[in-house]
Design a protein around this nucleic acid. Structure first.
Lengths: 249, 249
DNA sequence: AGCCCAACATGACATTTATCATATTTTAGA
DNA sequence: TCTAAAATATGATAAATGTCATGTTGGGCT
């Protein structure tokens, strides 16, 4: 497991995020899923007035590891992968953030450079919210603080679960689990294919294995009738079977 | 990696924690390390009046996975391992909590059953703080909320780092790293042995490997002059060498 | 002091996973 | 539509890791 250079480091070039039309936060459905719902009327108005809605195309970077964040990003649509580069040059994807989730809040709250980078897996629509409003609301509105805390507590629990899986499950089990996760979190289209299509490399970087191993195991799952593929699209053919793989059969 | 039963599940029996003498929180040094320092005078007084100081002996359980917590525990001395049992019957140690750290707060804040169990690695002295005081303070004192948030943000970052290490480093690298961690976090005694002595099994459960593999790698490190042992005590003989192992040489 | 049990240790072997090489397919873009 | 590059696929092999067996040691206990 050594010295494979990451092939395409994202540069400042693919960073132009289109600034889009304004939508009022007050009427944004997405807000129900995150801590912004604990904000008062005036606070929300301030957010709405200072936020910037952006379009991010698939593959583009929202922010990079080590970068100073001046605010947080609220995901309106699409999916972002949060990853960290390890010394061997490979990315480890730590989390996939989707509609309603807020990213970058950990770094803003800790007042640190970001420990992760965020890239769009999909075409995305996101809102940038300057950190001032976040921090002043935190300092004045305890409800908001509690709500943010609850979300962070949830993230922490999920991270714990990932650690356990990484430590105790085989690569094969983790890959099976990853597909079940993709189904239950992002669903499938009318033809039964997973809505969110990740590249094999991304899947490998989620479960922490080599891309070739990942491909090989997917092939094995296909042979066993657990998965079906069409191009890079993947369909779960035998959910129960995959669950059994995860449990260790 | 299958079906190895966990040998000793802790029962209610080894749960009698001795209730000790009272020390005022206001003068507790340990408080400087955690979010309690953001509490006001009266809040702190309430904590001090309602807290219960307990002694926990090495090996005893503070709380178990799935248990409902009625408060948090503040570590005054000693070390606790926070772990989660995976389906294959092995524990994954997710975190070691030491002096000044507060455990159980995630579950109390999220109002969920604990996702982890906490056991004493050392003889410990801990203070139990009922959750009412925590939650009411959170609801009224924004400073406290922000402080808790900061600590949780820190935990989350650490969890991210663990995920990356589990995904991208070999067992050998992770074990080398674990010893460097033990040195930098718990120090060494006058003879150069690590202050905190973990069993080989615990180390294996930290890095997510089989106990035998862990022992084997420690033996290898001894042969290479990176470690020295005396009984179960371990000394770091070549710190630079271990660092090189972690980097991948 | 001596006994006993759990922890430590090591060998032999099976299995999993990574690595390198090389096709083949798919996709994005001219 | 065509083409080059990227992604997917697979083989061969080496290296890492797990598993089972068995032996050894050390520390707590009477």
């Amino acid at each position: 497991m050594q010295l494979r250079q990451s092939k395409h480091r994202t540069t400042a070039k693919n960073r132009k995020m289109k600034e889009g039309m304004r939508t009022r936060c007050e009427s944004c459905i997405v807000r129900q899923f995150n801590a912004l719902r604990a904000m008062g009327k005036e606070e929300l108005k301030k957010v709405s007035d200072s936020k910037i809605t952006k379009t991010v195309k698939k593959g583009e970077t929202i922010f990079e590891e080590g970068e100073k964040l001046d605010g947080v990003f609220c995901v309106r649509s699409g999916v972002s992968k949060l990853s960290k580069l390890s010394e061997n040059g490979k990315d480890q994807i730590v989390k996939l953030a989707t509609k309603g989730e807020v990213i970058g809040q950990r770094s803003v709250i800790a007042e640190e450079f970001s420990n992760l980078s965020a890239k769009a897996v999909d075409d995305m629509e996101i809102c940038f919210i300057p950190k001032d409003i976040i921090t002043t609301t935190l300092n004045t509105n305890p409800n908001f603080g509690v709500e943010v805390l609850r979300h962070m507590a949830h993230d922490l629990k999920e991270a714990d679960d990932v650690i356990v899986n990484m430590g105790q499950k085989t690569v094969k089990q983790r890959i099976a689990q990853a597909f079940l996760y993709l189904k239950s979190n992002f669903g499938e289209d009318k033809d039964g294919f997973l809505t969110l299509t990740l590249s094999r490399e991304d899947i490998a970087n989620v479960v922490g294995t080599a891309t070739e191993s990942c491909i090989r195991i997917i092939s094995e799952f296909k042979k066993k009738g657990l998965l079906e593929t069409s191009g890079k699209k993947v369909a779960i053919a035998d959910e129960k079977g995959l669950e059994e793989v995860v449990e260790g059969f």
